[in-house]
Simulated assay, not measured.
Amino acid sequence: MAAEQERNSAPVRVAAELSLELKQARAELESAQNAPGLSGTRSTPSSTAVPVT
């Protein structure tokens, strides 16, 4: 029974860590979208584009 608890505890810890990281990433994304003067999309100037041949 102790071995089974040990096997189950690792995935539970991983899920908890990933949940926290996802929550933090969502908060960062939300604050970046609300920041004045920052664009949500990035674009490169056409003068720096390299033509594909």
Rank of each mutant, 00 (worst) to 15 (best):
R42Q: 13
V12F: 11
T53R: 15
N8D: 12
R42Y: 15
L38P: 00
T41H: 11
V12R: 10
N34H: 13
E17M: 03
A3G: 07
A2T: 07
N8F: 06
N34P: 01
T41K: 07
L18A: 06
E4V: 14
A35Q: 08
P36F: 00
R42I: 05
P36A: 05
E21T: 00
E6W: 06
P45E: 05
Q5A: 04
M1T: 09
K23Q: 08
R7S: 03
G40R: 01
T41G: 02
N34I: 01
P45H: 15
L38H: 02
T41E: 08
T53C: 04
P45L: 11
G37N: 09
E6D: 10
A15I: 03
G40Y: 02
L18T: 07
S43H: 13
R26F: 01
A49C: 08
N8K: 15
N34M: 11
R26T: 09
T44S: 13
E28Y: 03
A15V: 07
A2C: 13
Q5F: 04
S39V: 05
G40N: 08
P11L: 03
A2L: 11
A3W: 10
E17R: 00
Q33A: 04
R26K: 09
L20C: 02
A15W: 08
Q33V: 10
A2V: 09
E6P: 01
L18W: 05
L29R: 11
T53W: 10
E30R: 09
S19V: 01
A16K: 02
E21L: 13
S19G: 06
A25K: 11
T41N: 12
E6L: 06
E6C: 02
N8W: 11
L38S: 10
P36Q: 08
L29F: 12
A32K: 05
T48Q: 06
A10Y: 15
N8S: 14
G40S: 05
V14P: 00
T41W: 06
Q5Y: 08
L22D: 10
P36I: 03
S47G: 07
S9Q: 08
S46R: 10
A27F: 02
